[in-house]
Write a protein that binds this DNA or RNA. Structure first.
Lengths: 183, 183
DNA sequence: ACCTGAACACCGTTCAAGT
DNA sequence: ACCTGAACACCGTTCAAGT
């Protein structure tokens, strides 16, 4: 890729990210992004074939954090604390990208989605947590990673959509944790 | 309202319902609905000031069923069976209206939303279930109706969005029930 | 190779003109 | 009072013309 093209691409993503984070993807038009990045709409579409693809690129920074968050969650504490640490970090991470939770959760299991890579990352993160807690014999039988993905994604989407504060999210995650762990 | 206007209004809703149920509201245009109902777009907008308002009217039939579903759920069984009966009926009810769960859940607590009435119905339904289970001393402390609304709405939205079958939904509702009930 | 910007198609919504 | 349908504004996307 030519240097100027690379610069354009980077600038588009950098400019789009705060716009989308603040107002949600549906409230930001491709034209507005193109203008803010000082390129023509054609250039935008040369780098990102659809609006979804651009949003996927904006979410890219997210991926890097997921595994760190899992590492941190699993370093110490009781199984319940580890699980809750993961759940709350994940919800916090995704509600920082308006609409991200709903999109990723909705794309789970659809390999054709532009978010497929992110779904995989998310699924693997849940698998890691699940494996660890299974070793500790803390997981209720019959629970798999996909279910966890959907449950947590559902809560994250609700939290994101309704712009809930932490105080409103915590009790819901408690309910999930109680349901996921052995009694 | 003039008789012909009433007929038009009714026809619009009847025609719109199956279209929206089958394909989701975003995939059905107002023009298509107007054409199917054999009215001009202006007539559509005379009866429903926005597309959201039309969707709200389409969801109207839903309301009538919610209370019946609660009645049925609370007639017999252990507290856990009653809760699960309510949860699964609710999810089934709302996934029959593509996009309905997400919209109602997202509007919870927003009195300005066109879905405010439906939110109230939904909140009250959860309150009824919660009160009954509280009498039976089956509810974990710190759980209120709004949280239940959001948790169940989140699962319903995920189920709807991903078009999950009952077999995939049941274990998620089990997790919720385990989290909501006393251990 | 990459960029520009006019143009297209589609869709929610409005409104002047009719009955 | 209610209806019609042309028209508007907006937006995702494309493409012929340029460098």
């Amino acid at each position: 890729m030519r240097a100027d093209a690379q610069r354009n691409r980077d600038r588009i993503v950098e400019v789009a990210r705060p716009l989308i984070r603040a107002r949600g993807i549906d409230a930001v038009s491709m034209d507005e992004i193109a203008k803010a990045a000082e390129v023509g709409p054609g250039t935008l579409y040369r780098h990102f074939p659809t609006k979804e693809a651009l949003y996927d690129a904006v979410l890219e920074a997210w991926i890097l954090q997921v595994n760190d968050v899992v590492d941190k969650a699993l370093t110490s504490g009781t199984p319940r604390e580890q699980l809750l640490s993961w759940l709350s970090s994940y919800v916090e991470l995704l509600t920082a990208h308006k609409g991200g939770a709903a999109r990723i959760t909705a794309s789970l299991g659809d390999p054709g989605s532009p978010y497929a890579t992110k779904c995989d990352t998310y699924l693997n993160a849940n698998k890691r947590v699940l494996d660890r807690l299974t070793e500790a014999q803390a997981i209720r039988p019959g629970i798999d990673a996909m279910q966890m993905c959907r449950l947590v994604g559902g809560v994250a989407a609700v939290a994101d959509n309704s712009e809930l504060e932490v105080a409103a999210i915590t009790p819901m995650l408690d309910v999930l944790a109680d349901g996921i762990l052995v009694r």
